[in-house]
């Protein structure tokens, strides 16, 4: 049985597992000061994860649990994706410190870009490519708005790539390592990209929101790239619908989202040419 911990601000996690490979596998994705081989005795952890094998039918899958809450079972070959999804579940289901929106967040020159979008829209691909071009990653999954100041709180974790986006990244950046390519998960083939050193180094530093971009990859689009302004009311509604805890924040949630939308520029981006879209984005935004 091994016990180790992950210190990914603003949350810390202690993991208890009987897998002999999990800690080693995660070391490809997290730096040594984030992935601690032994939990810190005097530290109070936000989440204790129990990730052990149990009998279940004919197999002995790993069960991802926190407290008595069960998230999901995983076969040995899907340990990493289920672990990453499990951590997302812990945070999205239980944290109520930040107003959380399902979106990728990056920052450059002190200004943050929020990209909320449904699966298949190319959000993670764009997020990964922008990160590899020098943008700082705050999160590829969760936009955390601090109610105290309206700033965005980083929650740096590996970038999750799915299906075709894995090849797109490898075509654009052949030198970049893609880790733990796992076929046949419930989301298809998934793989992970390690955040850049810049992203890890600034993982404690909040960023000021500047843009909200709704990307939509359309292979058969007439134009290679089309960028439209989004009405602020539509942006607010979409963000509210894609928030994990907007209802819990109630009136404060509305105030925070209104303030966010008021102080940022919102766009809808339709594209089929990834290289061109990166150039246009950097021209328009930076």
């Amino acid at each position: 049985m091994s016990l180790f911990s992950l210190h990914t601000p603003p949350f810390t996690v202690r993991i208890e597992t009987d897998s002999s490979t999990l800690s080693n596998d995660l070391s490809a994705l997290y730096p040594t000061d984030v992935l601690q081989p032994v939990p810190i005795a005097y530290h109070i952890y936000d989440f204790h994860i129990d990730y052990k094998r149990h009998f279940s039918g004919k197999s002995r899958p790993y069960h991802f649990r926190t407290g008595t809450e069960h998230f999901r079972m995983a076969d040995a070959n899907q340990l990493i994706p289920t672990f990453e999804w499990g951590l997302n579940w812990c945070v999205s289901a239980y944290q109520q410190q930040y107003l959380a929106i399902h979106a990728a967040v990056l920052e450059k020159d002190g200004k943050a870009l929020i990209m909320p979008a449904p699966p298949g829209s190319g959000k993670s691909t764009l997020c990964a490519l922008l990160m590899l071009r020098g943008w700082r990653l705050l999160s590829d999954e969760m936009c955390l708005i601090d109610p105290a100041n309206g700033q965005l709180q980083p929650y740096v974790r590996p970038v999750s790539l799915k299906n075709a986006s894995i090849d797109v990244i490898q075509q654009h950046q052949p030198a970049v390592a893609v880790f733990h390519r796992t076929p046949d998960t419930e989301k298809g083939t998934v793989a992970y990209l390690r955040p850049t050193d810049l992203s890890w180094q600034h993982r404690h530093i909040q960023a000021k929101p500047a843009w909200i971009l709704f990307p939509a990859y359309q292979a058969d689009a007439a134009e290679p790239v089309a960028l439209f302004s989004m009405p602020k009311a539509d942006t607010l509604l979409y963000l509210a619908q894609n928030s994990f805890n907007y209802a819990v924040f109630a009136g404060e949630g509305f105030r925070l989202l209104s303030q966010l939308v008021e102080n940022t520029a919102s766009y809808r981006l339709e594209y089929r040419d990834t290289e061109l879209v990166l150039e246009i984005l950097e021209q328009q935004l930076c």
Binding site: R14, Y42, H43, I44, Y45, H48, G67, E69, Y94
Partner: peptide
């Protein structure tokens, strides 16, 4: 610290 960590997990589950 371990006691608080475990208390937080139990409390959250219930």
């Amino acid at each position: 610290a371990d006691c608080w960590t475990r208390l937080l997990q139990d409390a959250r589950s219930l």
